[in-house]
């Protein structure tokens, strides 16, 4: 029963979504199903919050290695939750100056805005910027001209890296008037527009069919591994 019931829910919801796509009369049912997902995800947020709290509180109480960081995490979590929920420092809307809580939760000057602007903003930008370092080390390590395919890939990388920067204009700009398509930026555009597009489309078609087959397996109940069944 524990397996059958979720299976029925998944199948019914799935079939409704498929059928409703072709039947305008069922459009509302489809929209409702989509909304149900959002509601479930929102409820699951509470479970997520509980998971964070439980895990880090245990870590602190057991004095496990690095428990100090858990204290920081817990403080950060609770403070953000508090200032966001209670709109700390949010100025009221100009139309209702004497009503607190009318302003936008992330209005400029509020505590949540402040934490966003001066903590999340720089931290996430830094994390993303780390990518530059990892790309460099991956380029050094992985781009080896081991065989013909790898050499072709290497050649393409050279053209794109040069064509996508000022170096392309600098090196081949002098004959751009006569042969615009043979300049590095021109070749880059051609590689991206022709070879890359062709490859991307092929991959996309494969993926789309894969998605269709996976969906069908789940709808027909053939693949129950997401429920942890034996056939996984």
């Amino acid at each position: 029963m524990k397996r059958t019931f979720p299976l029925i829910i998944a199948a019914v919801a799935g079939y409704v979504m498929v059928v409703a796509y072709f039947m305008p009369a069922l459009q509302q049912v489809r929209e409702d199903a989509e909304e149900w997902f959002n509601i479930l995800a929102a409820i699951a947020m509470i479970l997520g919050g509980a998971s964070i709290l439980g895990m880090h509180l245990r870590k602190v109480s057991d004095r496990r290695a690095g428990w100090g960081f858990s204290v920081v995490t817990l403080l950060g979590f609770l403070v953000t939750l508090y200032v966001g929920l209670f709109k700390v420092g949010v100025p009221p809307m100009p139309e209702y100056p004497d009503r607190a809580w009318t302003g936008e939760y992330i209005a400029q000057g509020s505590a949540l805005w402040w934490s966003f602007e001066y903590i999340i903003y720089p931290i996430t930008a830094t994390m993303f910027a780390l990518l530059a370092f990892y790309v460099a080390s991956a380029a050094f390590r992985a781009f080896r001209a081991k065989n013909l395919e790898a050499m072709l890939l290497l050649g393409t990388a050279f053209v794109i890296l040069l064509g996508r920067s000022y170096a392309g204009t600098l090196l081949t700009g002098w004959y751009a008037e006569e042969y615009p398509n043979l300049t590095l930026p021109g070749l880059t555009d051609m590689i991206m527009g022709v070879f890359n597009t062709a490859g991307q489309r092929a991959v996309m078609i494969g993926i789309a069919l894969g998605i269709a087959a996976t969906s069908l397996k789940i709808l027909l109940g053939i693949d129950r591994s997401y429920l942890g069944s034996r056939n996984g």
Binding site: G206, I207, S225, N231
Partner: peptide, 21 residues
């Protein structure tokens, strides 16, 4: 890569029904 990823579940299970997909 792409569809291989979706094929993985069927492949790993080795069940004929799944391989049929």
């Amino acid at each position: 890569i792409g569809e291989e990823f979706f094929a993985a579940s069927a492949y790993l299970s080795g069940e004929p029904e799944q391989l049929g997909t």
